[in-house]
């Protein structure tokens, strides 16, 4: 495994109304790592993940991307490399194809363009045909819109994915599809990519992750390595 540290969080702390939700959390994500994040509800998993994506304010602590502090003018560039995927995909108006094209209108992705052929290949692996692209986004099932959300992120070739219980609201079949899409993205460059996967399901964590962090009461309790 490569020793490149992609993402490092130091001393992340967040308090709301006297309660400490993140308690001096330190975390390192090396290139190649497939990190599972587990713990009881309310232990701060989601908050930690959102903080890593700079979607939450933090009271103290710092985020390093490839050993450099992420400054304000790099925030959008950082998020284009470290993409957070919501637990439930937000509903947008428009066809699936127009939703997938959305990120290419952003300044940070200028220079990249939508690759319809690649999307169709990806859809084929989860038993969806090309005409799936013409469906209105608001008519998709939960599983389908999660697949669209993942493909929308992965087509940008991010280095890190932050997956916030991406399958918790899905049936088994869709959950497997989501897993397979993430794993294929990872396997393309296993020594340059990494993800953090928040999961409630121990067997899923076993399947997709090679190390596991347990959180409780805003603190990281332990880190275990799998030997699978």
């Amino acid at each position: 495994m490569s020793q490149d540290v992609l993402l490092r969080a130091v001393d992340l702390t967040r308090r709301i109304a006297g309660r400490t939700l993140l308690d001096h959390v330190a975390l390192e994500l090396d290139a190649g790592m497939r990190l599972g994040l587990v713990g009881p509800t309310g232990s701060g998993k989601s908050l930690l993940l959102r903080s890593l994506a700079m979607l939450e304010p933090i009271d103290s602590g710092q985020l390093f991307w490839r050993n450099a502090v992420v400054s304000s003018d790099q925030a959008t560039g950082y998020r284009s490399q470290v993409v957070y995927v919501h637990q439930r995909a937000a509903g947008f108006e428009g066809s699936v194809e127009s939703i997938l094209q959305q990120p290419f209108q952003l300044k940070v992705h200028r220079g990249h363009s939508f690759d319809r052929g690649w999307i169709i290949e990806q859809l084929a692996t989860v038993s969806r045909e090309a005409r799936f692209l013409d469906q209105p986004h608001e008519q998709l099932s939960g599983g389908e819109s999660q697949i669209v959300a993942l493909l929308r992120a992965i087509q940008l070739s991010p280095s890190v994915l932050l997956l916030d219980e991406p399958t918790s609201a899905l049936d088994r079949q869709s959950a497997r599809h989501v897993e397979s899409i993430v794993m294929r993205w990872y396997e393309e460059k296993p020594d340059a990519r990494a993800f953090i996967w928040v999961s409630h399901d121990p067997s899923q964590a076993d399947r997709v992750c090679d190390s596991l962090i347990t959180m409780d009461a805003g603190q990281i309790q332990r880190l275990q390595q799998h030997t699978s």
């Binding site: 979607l55 998020r79 284009s80 995909a89 937000a90 509903g91 990120p103 940070v108 992705h109 940008l156």
Partner: peptide, 14 residues
Amino acid sequence: SRGQVETLIALGAT
């Protein structure tokens, strides 16, 4: 539309 706004931010939007 908080969900949409945050999704775009998470994808690198200003």
